[in-house]
Design a protein around this nucleic acid. Structure first.
Length: 488
RNA sequence: GGUCUCUUGGCCGAGUGGCUAGGCACCGGUCUGCAAAACCGCCUACUCCGGUUCGAAUCCGGAAGAGACCUCCA
């Protein structure tokens, strides 16, 4: 199996040959969701990006441990470290237990990721379940001298760390610049420097979620969980750390600093970052009013959506852009993706009907090689898709009798789609479905009645059946092989 | 303001110093009782101004525009 993979490493800002620390194994950690709100488009991009990478690494034969955390504690809502815990705030708002809220949104997250055909990671550790590990890590950092305590809170001493290490190596920041450009924020009196960050924060009396520690009743700083949990499950030095570009600074920068301070070594060999999503050219944000949840996409129930878009359309659309490019959502672009996906899926159906020839006009093996080359070059899914469309064109031409395919060609094409469309890109055909046996049987009956009517040239009956079905949301299409139907 | 990134045809989006993806839309055709769909074909772009080069959309410099991070965010 060809494993000649090249990845773009944010740390070095160039493409590097991918060579895992243990040749047969890959450890991958990706920053997961904060479960205090409904899953939205912003959750889909990194989930799908790293799902693609997870799937491909497994496909080429690596044994992969994929860890994606669930943040159910610790991220602060307001500026600096003075805000309430996000989970807590939502909980009080809705009069629920904090963990009840976290569980609800975690379930929602899983539900929608499943619909996007995103595979579950190997481990999904929750921050609240790893308080002990985080406390231990704080102790190590204090011991190494890079943290200080103020009123029961522990802060990371960035300036001291930067004397012997390079704080800013990942994000390209320079500490002096940071200092010069830091805004004056209220309530930062405790910190020596504004760019210092909390490792442990003493909880205020109204703060519901808190745990005991040697320093105070409190909660962990918001960068700490990733460092603690990645170390626990993947070791002090592991292969891949992923996440959105927005996490580059300060989150990932702080993770490096924490790990170096605690363990004395760099935590990650390859840093991979997916780019962001925009909507009609604008950043998606709650304050901008263009915030769209996945449920709204799937139902079409949002003022800026012209229609519902299926999970596979969203997935396909995201995969049509390279993960390091921004991707712009618009109704027009999504409709284009929807049609393209349909064409691709139809091509796979057509493939099963082709009659083999004795000789061949095409080179399927080259297509396969091109797909592997594309994936090996920093997971270039758009190129893979363009090659699959070339395969579809060949299939349709063969179906029209314009090109010839041998049995071997057909088998190669089936393998191409199985490997790349289904296994690696994680696509599936969700356009024609019912999932209900009695409805299937019912529709079969109705379609056979309509077929009889058509054969008797009784078009008023056949049209009536089609029109009435349309009124209840079932679309009929007459094809060469009979009518097909789908529920809108 | 600081740091960084981007600017490709009607739209979305790959990509490479010369051989110039792909999808959608348009247009032409095939199929069809009609409709819709489907299928085939077709359209040759790279923000602007300089420079390097036999040759640049691709490298360098400048300009304009857009975006990201610096502050919760995927």
């Amino acid at each position: 199996m060809d494993k000649n993979i090249v990845v773009f490493n944010t740390l070095t800002r160039k493409k590097e040959k991918f060579e895992p620390l243990n040749s047969a194994f890959v450890g991958m950690y990706v920053c997961g969701p904060t479960v205090y709100g409904d899953p939205h488009l912003g959750h889909a991009r990194p989930a799908i990006t790293f799902d693609l990478i997870f799937r491909y690494l497994k496909h080429v034969g690596y044994k992969v441990r994929y860890v994606r955390n669930i943040t159910d504690v610790g991220h602060l809502e307001n500026d600096a470290d003075e805000g309430e815990d996000k989970i807590e705030k939502k909980a009080r708002l809705e009069q629920l237990e904090p963990m009840e809220v976290a569980q609800y949104y975690l379930d929602r997250y899983h539900k929608f990721m499943d619909r996007l055909n995103v595979l579950r990671p190997s481990i999904e550790p929750r921050a609240s379940g790893h308080i002990i590990e985080q406390v231990e890590m704080v102790k190590k950092i204090i011991k190494s001298g890079y943290a200080y305590e103020v009123n029961g809170s522990i802060y990371f001493d960035v300036e001291k760390y930067n004397k012997k290490n390079n704080y800013g190596k990942l994000s390209g920041r320079v500490l002096e610049d940071l200092l010069a450009n830091t805004r004056d924020l209220e309530g930062q009196d405790e910190k020596k420097n504004p760019f210092d960050f909390a490792l442990w924060k003493k909880a205020s009396p109204e703060h519901i979620m808190h745990w005991s520690s040697p320093w105070s009743e409190g909660f962990p700083g918001w960068h700490l969980e990733c460092s603690a949990m990645s170390t626990k499950y993947l070791g002090e030095y592991f292969d891949i750390h992923g996440g959105g570009m927005d996490l580059l600074f300060p989150h990932h920068e702080c993770e490096i600093a924490q790990s170096v301070a605690a363990n004395g070594k760099e935590p990650v060999k390859y840093w991979l970052h997916n780019n962001m999503i925009t909507i009609n050219g604008q950043k998606m944000g709650k304050s901008l009013g263009n915030f769209i949840t996945l449920e709204e996409f799937f139902t079409g129930n949002h003022k800026s959506l012209s229609q519902a878009f299926s999970p596979m359309t969203i997935r396909f659309f995201i995969l049509q852009a390279h993960y390091r490019s921004t991707v712009d959502f618009s109704n027009e672009a999504l409709q284009a993706a929807e049609k393209g996906l349909k064409k691709l899926m139809q091509g796979i159906v057509t493939l099963n009907k082709i009659k083999p020839s004795a000789n061949s006009d095409v080179n399927i093996i080259k297509l396969q090689h091109d797909c592997y080359d594309a994936m090996n070059d920093d997971f270039n899914s758009p190129i893979v898709i363009s090659n699959l469309f070339e395969a579809v064109r060949i299939i349709n031409s063969a179906n029209d009798g314009k090109e010839k395919l041998t049995i071997k060609d057909i088998e190669s094409l089936k393998k191409l789609f199985n490997d790349f469309a289904y296994d690696i890109l994680g696509l599936r055909d969700d356009s024609l479905y019912s999932g209900n046996n009695s409805i299937d049987g019912l529709m079969e009956l109705i379609l056979s009645l309509r077929k009889n009517a058509k054969e008797n040239k009784d078009f008023s009956t056949s049209d009536k059946i089609r029109d009435e079905l349309l009124k209840i949301g079932i679309t009929l299409k007459d094809t060469k092989d009979g009518a097909v139907w789908k529920v809108e």
